[in-house]
Computed example of a mutant assay.
Amino acid sequence: MTFTNRLGEIAEKEDHHPSILTEWGRVCVTWWTHTVQGLHINDFIIASRTDRLI
């Protein structure tokens, strides 16, 4: 839950909200940009920040 909460704080700060599935012992995060209906460079940047949380 700590990871999910920290990720939520980052998402709020960046105003960029992922799909987050939190299960016992694992979290699946999906970043994509709704306005372009796919991936944008910002998705890769924030995915990198997500990786650094681990």
Rank of each mutant, 00 (worst) to 15 (best):
D15V: 10
I41G: 01
R6G: 04
Q37I: 01
N5M: 07
K13A: 13
G8I: 00
T2Y: 00
P18G: 05
L39V: 14
R6A: 09
I54E: 05
D43G: 02
G25C: 03
D43K: 13
S48G: 14
V29F: 01
C28T: 09
F44I: 10
E12M: 06
R49E: 15
Q37R: 11
T30D: 15
T2F: 00
E14Y: 00
R52L: 15
T2G: 05
E14H: 08
A47V: 07
K13Y: 01
T33Y: 03
H40P: 07
T33V: 12
T35D: 04
R52N: 15
C28E: 08
C28Q: 11
P18N: 04
G8Q: 09
N5S: 03
I45N: 14
I54H: 10
K13Q: 11
A47Y: 10
H34V: 08
W24R: 14
V36C: 12
I20C: 02
I45T: 13
T22A: 14
T33R: 00
A47I: 14
L7C: 06
P18V: 08
F44T: 06
H16Y: 02
E14N: 05
P18Y: 02
I10Q: 13
T30W: 06
R52E: 15
P18K: 05
E9H: 08
S48N: 13
G8S: 08
E9G: 05
L53T: 03
W31G: 11
D15R: 10
R26V: 01
G25Y: 03
T4D: 05
G38S: 04
T35Q: 04
Q37Y: 08
I45K: 15
T4V: 11
K13N: 10
L7K: 00
D43T: 12
V36K: 13
L21N: 12
W31P: 03
L53S: 03
L21M: 08
I54L: 10
E9C: 01
N5P: 00
I45Y: 12
G25D: 01
T30V: 14
I41V: 11
W31C: 10
I10A: 09
W24T: 10
L7T: 01
R49H: 13
T22C: 02
H16W: 04
K13T: 09
